[in-house]
């Protein structure tokens, strides 16, 4: 399998605080990698570094066969990295459909003249984009919600719309930041199945931050654990589950005292 994303000694500091310390990570094509760790471990910071939101202080990020260190967000996106946000960040006053159209932005070409003249190539491109947007709405099960303003959608639909918007980028790598946060068990189960489906149908790699252990352990091919900005464990869900360092990180000394049952419970 080819390696799609690789970080080498990636470090990020905020003032005196080292949020990410020397992170090495490798992600193959078509793999779901779970990223777990206690609050403040640096998971979202890692996402922000990968998507050019934060400049990194050390190390390198290789995507495909090139370094993407120092590239701005819009460039990393057009290279094929799309993401969702922990606290949903849809464009609230745009419709669901428009949100997806914005996602297709970097796959479209029309410039100022095209927009004003509405020439044939622009019209064609727009038509295609609308078609594709409808398709994606269907894919995430929001068929009849295209004209609803994003802010008026129910919470679960907003989460799914955000994924649809990210998919509109035609990514090779999808970063999902706690996609099931705030969902009830039924919704969570649905979404978990949906993430599996995305991977198999669209053949992309997924990096998944998730607090719900059942979700992570259920769909991840591999799991990486961060704690205080350091990678403390890596492996199959089964290996990670048994790793004493992980148990300690999650439950502190109490966890070690109580033995391994705590995590599996």
């Amino acid at each position: 399998m080819t390696i799609l994303l690789q970080t080498k000694g990636l470090s990020k500091r905020f003032g005196g605080l080292t949020a990410l310390n020397n992170i090495d990570l490798a992600l193959e094509s078509c793999v779901i990698l779970g990223l777990i760790g206690p609050n403040g471990a640096g998971k979202t910071t890692l996402f922000n570094c990968l998507t050019g939101v934060y400049p990194i202080d050390g190390g390198d990020i290789i995507f495909g066969n090139r370094s993407i260190r120092g590239l701005k967000s819009h460039v990393t996106t057009s290279l094929g990295i799309a993401r969702t946000f922990q606290n949903i960040r849809l464009f609230g006053n745009m419709t669901a459909l428009e949100n997806i159209l914005v996602g297709q932005h970097c796959r479209m070409k029309a410039g100022v003249w095209g927009a004003i003249a509405m020439n044939r190539s622009t019209l064609k491109e727009e038509k295609k984009a609308f078609g594709k947007a409808d398709e994606l709405l269907n894919f995430v099960g929001l068929n009849d919600q295209g004209d609803t303003l994003a802010k008026n959608l129910p919470y679960g639909d907003q989460r799914r719309l955000e994924i649809a918007r990210a998919l509109a980028v035609k990514p090779r790598l999808l970063l999902l930041d706690e996609p099931t946060a705030g969902m009830n068990p039924r919704e969570t189960a649905e979404l978990t199945g949906f993430i599996e489906q995305i991977r198999t149908e669209l053949e992309l790699s997924i990096l998944l931050i998730e607090h719900d252990m059942r979700v992570v352990m259920g769909i991840s091919d591999r799991v990486t654990v961060l704690d205080y900005g350091v990678k403390i464990a890596e492996g199959s869900p089964e290996e990670v589950r048994k790793n004493p360092k992980v148990i300690e990180a999650y439950l502190g000394r109490l966890g070690t005292m109580m033995g391994k049952r705590a995590v599996t419970a």
């Binding site: 939101v53 967000s73 996602g103 918007r165």
Partner: peptide
């Protein structure tokens, strides 16, 4: 519009 709504999210969606 996307930029007006949420600049950071717009950047991550590929808008320069």
């Amino acid at each position: 519009i996307a930029m007006r709504e949420d600049q950071d999210a717009a950047a991550v969606m590929g808008i320069n």
